[in-house]
């Protein structure tokens, strides 16, 4: 073995730790069960390599059945409005049309995950997690933050998302407060911020 081989072998033995530990959740739309029971905790990881090991072995979001979700949250935060970390928060929402399931959904979801686990945001402490919903009427991706009143942080996160996903400037992203989504009477929740 040359000296170079040894260096490479050593390099591979080190895993790269993440700032946070993250948990992947899978929601299966089983109508005989409660919503909470349908949320299943799949796995947690705290290194770059363990993230990829999981990601490389699960179906991409575009292959999930309609009605199902993936969620990725900081460990200890459940992917639901009622969680202590989410209840004052909201989400940046990306609505996708049907064509985008084949073209963009998986790329957007992966880019969002990489922003989360790589701590891409200046205000990454405000991040709770992200959810991708596979739905017949249009898939959705939401990035959840913990406090909707922290406008500077929320807007920084929205702008960074738009930039990192290469979303065209003419496409407007809206931020919706979970409380408003819960209380809405019609089918549309108002946007509290837009970028």
């Amino acid at each position: 073995k040359t000296e170079n081989d040894i260096d490479i072998a050593q390099d591979f033995s080190i895993k790269h730790p993440l700032q946070n530990c993250w948990t992947l959740w899978y929601y299966e739309n089983d109508r005989s069960q409660t919503w909470e029971k349908n949320q299943k905790e799949i796995a947690s990881f705290q290194t770059v390599e363990d993230f990829w090991s999981l990601y490389n072995h699960i179906k991409p979001a575009s292959e999930l059945r309609q009605g199902n979700d993936y969620s990725l949250f900081k460990r200890g935060i459940r992917p639901m409005w009622e969680d202590e970390a989410n209840k004052r928060g909201g989400r940046w929402l990306i609505n996708l049309d049907k064509k985008q399931r084949t073209n963009e959904l998986d790329r957007y979801w992966l880019d969002i995950i990489l922003c989360l686990i790589g701590e891409a945001f200046e205000h990454s402490d405000e991040i709770c997690g992200a959810v991708v919903n596979i739905r017949g009427k249009g898939d959705k991706i939401g990035v959840w933050t913990s406090d909707a009143t922290k406008s500077a942080a929320v807007i920084e996160i929205g702008k960074k998302l738009k930039e990192r996903l290469h979303i065209p400037p003419r496409t407007v992203l809206g931020y919706q407060i979970h409380k408003d989504t819960q209380d809405k009477s019609g089918s549309v929740t108002k946007n509290s911020y837009t970028v």
Partner: peptide, 18 residues
């Protein structure tokens, strides 16, 4: 522990990531 996209992507097919 901040990692950009290129750095994360470069580790995707590392033996430890499989």
């Amino acid at each position: 522990k901040v990692y950009d996209k290129d750095f994360l992507m470069a580790l995707r097919h590392d033996p430890a990531s499989r």
